[in-house]
């Protein structure tokens, strides 16, 4: 790729992707709460309203169900809306339109229509926003056939996967961890896509596979750097897409390392870790396992306000290091 590569933040990368999508295709437009002159609660849309006008960067009333439904209806009839939820928690107000309508429309109508809507969800804890503004609900949507659910972990992927989502004929839900918005990384100029449904091996290793999502990818890489000094060689698989899941990449990795740990911020029970673990247990990789599978997920509580408690409810780098060490040394 000849395109010039710059350091952009995750938020800037998303903004650039949306601008490119709107420049390329007049059907693409943005909808959401306070995404116009305000620039979005996390400044992801930023100044796009100045470039594209209020007709394509549309502030909605505080009506998540109605707004999501309007986006679904517009997508159904030829437009390419990108709908921003102010916080992913507010998906609870719009589940009807996403789960019953967007996800099933093509199926229910025997393939006569498609719903190319993109929805963006600022997710996760770590901002002191407490229990109703800090959840990780991606597995809820990951449970629904008809949706595609992605969690880009880097600025590069955030841009490329958003552009892939806009080009996708089906509804794509993007969960963006709020703490990633300021993370910087190399991002090429211009148009490129990162495929939906493909995991990425962020770090190769021989002793242990860590399957991580979103912000946990960086935490797993940080843990892997420390563990390397102890002689533990960790492979980090960034799942990137939770539906449809790239099973083969995970299976191949586990066959190589013989150990699996899943690290994710959402509540541990009934989550992505359970799915990945079960998938491995059902696969040929099961015979390669030298140790029980380990899941590190969020605590079985709402996210608390107090910063120390808040940190304690989700896996941190030392937790990953300890769990990985125990797993490789056979403590578990």
């Amino acid at each position: 790729m000849d395109a010039m590569v710059r350091e952009l933040s995750y938020a800037q990368a998303i903004q650039e992707a949306m601008a490119i999508a709107m420049e390329m295709d007049e059907r693409v437009f943005l909808m959401g709460e306070d995404i116009g002159v305000y620039g979005g609660a996390f400044q992801v849309t930023g100044d796009l309203v100045e470039r594209f006008g209020t007709e394509r960067v549309i502030d909605t009333p505080i009506s998540e169900l109605g707004g999501a439904g309007v986006a679904v209806g517009a997508a159904l009839t030829g437009m390419r809306p990108i709908f921003e939820f102010q916080f992913s928690d507010f998906v609870t107000l719009a589940m009807e339109q996403i789960v019953n309508q967007a996800a099933k429309m093509r199926f229910m109508l025997g393939g006569e229509v498609s719903v190319p809507v993109v929805m963006r969800f600022p997710a996760g804890s770590g901002t002191g926003a407490a229990a109703q503004h800090s959840q990780s609900l991606e597995a809820w949507l990951g449970h629904v056939p008809g949706l595609k659910v992605i969690q880009p972990a880097t600025p590069y992927d955030a841009k490329g996967m958003l552009l892939a989502a806009v080009a996708d004929p089906d509804p794509v839900m993007i969960f963006e961890h709020k703490l990633l918005y300021k993370m910087k990384g190399p991002v090429p100029e211009g148009y490129y896509t990162v495929p939906i449904g493909k995991a990425d091996i962020r770090r190769e290793g021989r002793d242990l596979t860590i399957v991580a999502t979103s912000i946990m990818v960086q935490k797993a890489l940080d843990a892997a750097a420390t563990l390397e000094a102890e002689g533990i060689d960790v492979e980090v698989v960034d799942l990137r897409t939770i539906r449809p899941m790239d099973k083969q990449t995970v299976i191949d990795s586990v066959k190589k390392t013989s150990r699996l740990m899943c690290v994710y911020e959402a509540v541990k029970t009934l989550g992505i870790g359970a799915e990945v673990s079960a998938m491995i247990a059902e696969s040929e990789a099961f015979d390669y396992l030298d140790a029980p599978i380990v899941r590190l997920g969020g605590a079985e509580t709402p996210i608390p306000y107090n910063p120390e408690l808040e940190k304690a409810t989700v896996p941190q780098v030392p937790d990953i290091i300890t769990a990985a060490r125990d797993l490789v040394k056979g403590v578990r």
Partner: peptide, 11 residues
């Protein structure tokens, strides 16, 4: 109902 409004927005 919201879907109809979305179709009208497309229009």
């Amino acid at each position: 109902i919201p879907i109809a409004v979305g179709a009208a927005l497309s229009s």
